[in-house]
């Protein structure tokens, strides 16, 4: 079976420089053949051989959760792109890139990869790249939920316009980004060592970082959002963990904006890198032995209205429960209520 096509999502608020970043990529032949999907005609002035326009079409499913909105247009556009690349010959596609509109929430696109059977078999998530404008970016994050969400879903943040006089201080930008998405890669597009090939490297979207890269404290943002890092010493029982996380996402997926991290498990010697957006978790990746520096496992959560304590206690309780099979302490709330009534 052939390797899945990596899909990179470029997101970012209005005027942040998404198209400029994309143009830089397309002008660099060494980065290989790129297929591009853009959402609207006219928004992007791109002259590119492999360009597909997809009219953004959100179809809300039952429940109305935005991450579950069907983005059939994305699957069709990527399918079209792959067929065109095959028909026209030349080098096979090295990647596909989708540039979202400035006000779009990228999570339905990420979700489409996990839900659409054709996409699941042929396309994998490369990276979610958020372009952050050094001049207006901080104000956008503070004022617009869309900008905050774009940043939360991203694993790589490319800061643009650092060369302009009114650019914010680098430290302030890094601090703002880390407070939302603690383990994101943050790159300055104007730095001499800025490497586009590194930005669009065909890896999965989580780059394990050392603990020192994290903010120690939990951070609450606008709209009741919280970001926190949950450290896990020792090896997690993978089957038990999957039961807990799937049940958590089943019940609260719409409030878990992002979950990602590196886990040491009982099931394999190599750490697993996992990442999910709301209800959808992508197939994890086993870290190569040479990339494993022995750091303890961790999970980054970006949640809406659920705190670290609730989640941490829930996981501990669950792991304790499965370690004691047959113990009749499961007590659903209903059972607990009945027991209380009897007493």
């Amino acid at each position: 079976m052939t390797e899945r096509l990596p899909l990179f999502i470029i997101t970012g608020f209005l005027g942040s420089g998404k198209t400029t970043l994309l143009q830089q990529l397309l002008r660099k032949p060494s980065t290989g053949t790129t297929g591009v999907v853009v959402n609207e005609f006219g928004e992007v002035g791109l002259d590119h051989r492999l360009l597909v326009h997809a009219k953004e079409h959100l179809e809300l499913v039952e429940g109305g959760c935005i991450c579950c909105a069907r983005r059939q247009d994305i699957g069709e556009a990527i399918h079209d792109l792959v067929r065109r690349a095959q028909r026209e010959g030349g080098n096979p596609l090295a990647r596909a890139v989708i540039e979202t509109t400035g006000l779009a929430d990228p999570s339905p696109v990420v979700s489409a990869l996990g839900r659409d059977p054709w996409m699941r078999a042929h396309v994998r998530l490369g990276r979610v790249i958020c372009v952050l404008d050094a001049v207006n970016g901080l104000a956008s994050i503070a004022a617009h939920g869309e900008a905050l969400r774009q940043l939360a879903v991203a694993d790589t943040v490319v800061v643009t316009k650092m060369d302009m006089g009114r650019a914010a201080e680098w430290g302030d930008l890094v601090s703002a980004v880390r407070s939302v998405t603690p383990d994101a890669r943050i790159l300055d597009a104007h730095a001499p060592d800025f490497d586009l090939e590194q930005v669009f490297a065909a890896e999965d979207g989580v780059t394990p970082l050392h603990g020192s890269g994290f903010r120690a404290e939990d951070t609450t943002h606008a709209a009741n959002w919280t970001s926190f890092v949950m450290h896990r010493d020792g090896a997690l029982d993978w089957p038990a963990f999957t039961l807990w996380l799937s049940a958590l996402l089943h019940a609260h997926g719409s409030r878990i904006v992002r979950v990602k991290g590196l886990l040491r498990t009982t099931t394999s010697p190599a750490p697993l890198v996992i990442h999910g957006v709301q209800h959808v978790v992508h197939p994890p990746r086993h870290l190569r032995p040479e990339d494993d520096d022995g750091q303890p496992g961790y999970l980054v959560f970006i949640t809406n209205g659920i705190g670290r304590r609730e989640i941490e206690e829930s996981l501990d309780r669950f792991l304790d429960r499965v370690r004691h099979p047959g113990a009749r302490i499961i007590g659903t709330a209903a059972v607990v209520a009945r027991e209380r009534a009897k007493a």
Binding site: S246, A247, H250, A251, I306, F318, I330, G331, T332
Partner: peptide, 22 residues
């Protein structure tokens, strides 16, 4: 979890109670 909920009428929520809660 949806299948369990549909058959048992219980809501699965690991943030509640013990085990899978509900």
């Amino acid at each position: 979890w949806s299948a369990v909920e549909a058959l048992t009428g219980e809501r699965i929520d690991p943030l509640l109670g013990q085990g899978v809660g509900g």
